[in-house]
């Protein structure tokens, strides 16, 4: 059994909300209420949940872009929970992110080659043109794409640029936050294939976050289902999808419309099965 590369123990994150009154205490939002899980090396781990379930907060803490209120995150044997920024450089090289919105994830005022080279420059590696061309090639973009600006590309192409940037420092862990939810169906398949191929070729550990269980099932080996700041169910994607144990997961699985089920006569009322009435 391979070593866990990510080990999350009892993670809690509370946000103070802006005060509504001078005299009452600021209300608190419990974004994460004791989340624990492990991701092993080379695994494809999915996190599924609907908006507000805490999955984005969890990702930010994993990437040390936010601090936990309590609990522990261990990445590659190092506890990153309270590490100061200057000692996080191993994480900044080894864990990279791909975001949801292909519009806002690339700086509109930078050329693509500078965008892709940014993580390299930050970490003091020489950012050679060769490496940038190699990365462009790996994500299926032409070499001259480097000279252009993000707005000259379509959504799918921009998501490829995002992936190239994430791969630049040769990370071990790729964290993808809803990487295909903003894409057209015909382009979504291309990007999913690309992520799959790269994870295999480069031996990456993948953490894939999505609201769409059917996409996670396609991409990942194991999945954690989140609801209201907690993980309600963990298991292999096949198991969770076929025989969901937790009531919330059951509701979630039932609610996903699929072509195959629709063609066999599933109605919108069936989608509501498992919902509390």
């Amino acid at each position: 059994m391979p070593e866990p590369v990510i080990q999350v123990t009892d993670l809690v994150r509370d946000y103070p909300r802006p005060r509504t009154s001078l005299f009452r205490r600021a209300p608190v939002v419990h974004a994460l209420r004791g989340v624990s899980f492990e991701v092993r090396a080379g695994e494809r781990f999915g996190i599924v949940g609907e908006s507000g379930c805490g999955k984005s907060t969890l990702l930010r803490i994993l990437a040390a872009l936010d601090r936990a209120t309590s609990g522990q995150v261990v990445v590659d044997g190092t506890d990153i929970t309270n590490l100061p920024e200057r000692r996080l450089s191993f994480l900044r090289e080894n864990l990279q992110l791909v975001f949801q919105d292909p519009m806002s994830s690339l700086d509109p005022r930078m050329r693509v080659r500078d965008i892709i080279a940014e993580p390299l420059v930050v970490q003091g590696h020489p950012a050679s043109g060769d490496r940038v061309r190699e990365l462009l090639d790996a994500v299926g973009l032409p070499p001259n794409a480097g000279d252009r600006y993000p707005h000259q590309f379509s959504g799918g192409q921009r998501q490829r640029i995002s992936i190239a940037r994430a791969l630049a420092p040769r990370p071990k862990i790729l964290v993808a936050d809803e990487p295909v939810s903003a894409l057209d169906v015909s382009v979504r398949a291309q990007v999913l294939n690309l992520i799959s191929d790269l994870v295999d070729e480069l031996d990456l550990t993948l953490v894939f976050v999505s609201h769409d269980l059917s996409v996670v099932k396609h991409v990942c080996d194991r999945v954690a289902v989140m609801n209201a700041g907690q993980i309600v169910e963990t298991g292999t994607t096949g198991e969770v999808y076929a025989t969901p144990a937790h009531p919330y997961t059951r509701r979630l699985v039932a609610a996903i419309p699929t072509l195959a089920r629709a063609l066999t006569g599933t109605t919108t009322t069936d989608l509501l099965k498992g919902a509390p009435t």
Partner: peptide, 8 residues
């Protein structure tokens, strides 16, 4: 889909 762990 249940192909188990670490198999791609």
């Amino acid at each position: 889909a249940d192909v188990g762990l670490a198999t791609s």
